[in-house]
Design a protein around this nucleic acid. Sequence first.
DNA 1: TCGCGTCCATACCGTCAGGGTATGGCGTGA
DNA 2: TCACGCCATACCCTGACGGTATGGACGCGA
Lengths: 331, 331
Amino acid sequence: MDATGGIDGVLDVRDLRYFRAVAEERNITRAAERLGIAQPPLSRAIRQLERRLGVSLLDRSTRQVTPTAAGLVLLEEAVRVLDAVSAAAHRTRRAALAAPVVVVTAKPGVATDLLRRTARAYAAEPGAARVEILVSGYGEQGGLVRDGRADVALLGTGEDDHGLDLEPLTSEPRVAALPAGHPLADRSVLSCRDLAGLPFPHCPVLPPHADDYWSGRDVRDEAVAAPRPVVRDSSQLLEAVALGQAVALIPASLAERNRRDDIAYRPVRDAGPYTLAIAWTSGSRSPAIARFVRTAIEVASHERTSRAAGPPSHAAEPSSRVAGPVASDQG
Amino acid sequence: MDATGGIDGVLDVRDLRYFRAVAEERNITRAAERLGIAQPPLSRAIRQLERRLGVSLLDRSTRQVTPTAAGLVLLEEAVRVLDAVSAAAHRTRRAALAAPVVVVTAKPGVATDLLRRTARAYAAEPGAARVEILVSGYGEQGGLVRDGRADVALLGTGEDDHGLDLEPLTSEPRVAALPAGHPLADRSVLSCRDLAGLPFPHCPVLPPHADDYWSGRDVRDEAVAAPRPVVRDSSQLLEAVALGQAVALIPASLAERNRRDDIAYRPVRDAGPYTLAIAWTSGSRSPAIARFVRTAIEVASHERTSRAAGPPSHAAEPSSRVAGPVASDQG
DNA sequence: TCGCGTCCATACCGTCAGGGTATGGCGTGA
DNA sequence: TCACGCCATACCCTGACGGTATGGACGCGA
């Protein structure tokens, strides 16, 4: 039970920070300067880590180090741990504040209206915590909740929602945004096949495989040779489209609010809808968060029923997921 | 940016292990011997942790230490982190094995049949990983997946499933198990109200509030003065009932397989069903796990359709949850 | 009320892990 | 073939962490 190593002390936050840097940079020297330490201690730390785990984590060819299969697993787990550690510090500090605070976030443009209305409705409830709204860029929401900087986020389902509990709020069709002169703009309706291979924008904070969010499908298999512009919010996205650098699948409401001559919006027959959901830390036991989530669901449901003129396909089905915020809410 | 403290190095696995022990034991001396260190270093470590976080974590009355509100938050987060760290080590080591392995677990009695059939169907698929079946006691399944000792678990929904992705497989009614001579055994059908205040068994590995699993409702509010027998598996549970120490809500199939004179089973009108689900690490990207989950869903669905004589309420609705195992399965 | 026991905090000390600097080895590309 | 880039090894030093000894506060029982 010692040669193979117990599980208790083999991994440390420091080890995981170090290994993450190396596995991501694929270069020990660069990783060392990213970490602010010298290269030799980092080399040694990684080797010690491999010895303690009894597992080879890196293939060390002379020009670069590449993670082994086990190394890739550890990288994924390391991100999870580091998020959890950061969350622990953030949430503990927030819990120590004199007045309770709920930090909510959403990307600007798509979801901030709903978020503001929810925050207002929540603030009107008796015993509500102070609400702090954090504006964030594309694809940042999931990370903000996971590492504890935010308690609750509004994000599109499938965006970056693993490890979070979520409840759908609203759903709307997605349309293709094309540069005005684009050949496809001549057609009145498109399908996902038409869009294959076109340059979809790239969101810098998401892992590469998450890019299927913008394309409505999985782009991992395809050799995406086309240069992919980097965007951080909807105005950058639309600008990239207008300049002919990209096409994108965007929520219909975003298109409606941004009618312009240099962009053509076209329905896409088989594109999945854009579903906006509220997300929070999986298994959170905070009454304030549970209360806020419930308020958001109510606000969204009221808005659906009040503007009942809209097509019924715009309504999100309530999730059948069993786990909700489990806090009993008598505070 | 230094007085308030950054987030980077304030928390360490060691700190969280230490704090967890203290917060759970509510006694530094006992926590120290549980950790296998002397008391003074532990005292110092906790104080340093408080200083680094800038947060008071413990109320130190003279006879015992009790966690503050922030301390309770940190305790919850610490458990999460420690599970994730343990999972990182376990999964990395498992990923380094020559032949890929999927470790699956279920409690004995209720779910092992389905698990075995799923394992057999999975093993027949091309390129399947080796399946290792881990038997576990009541309420252990969630923890086993969270800390990485298992990859996949079959468990009842609501049991201990936070932080896991899950997909319902089968659903069946729950019945009350009563000692043969119990007054309620005279009635042919019961309701949850009848059972309020009765001694439901206690599962040692679950946190106290999770006991509502056995009672079908939330027992946190009630002053449960009745002594609660501790059970670890279904035979212990039934024994406790037969001895008159407990009553329990159990899946109907378990009752059918354990007909005996000293226990009376009675339907409970408003008790929620027992839903068996397959659970895996939220956001897991392993093709083998995704494949196993899919096989389990197919096996369960085949069994539902094949014995179509059963009442339709026994069929679990497929979850509308968007996130499934995200791996593209071409391996 | 006194004394004892329990429990947490402080003081002091030794060890070793972790970080820094210097340097070597190796492969690649010009 | 030379120079550069990159990783590994050798060596030193600082400081963090754990142990022992001890003090102080509070509660309880005689």
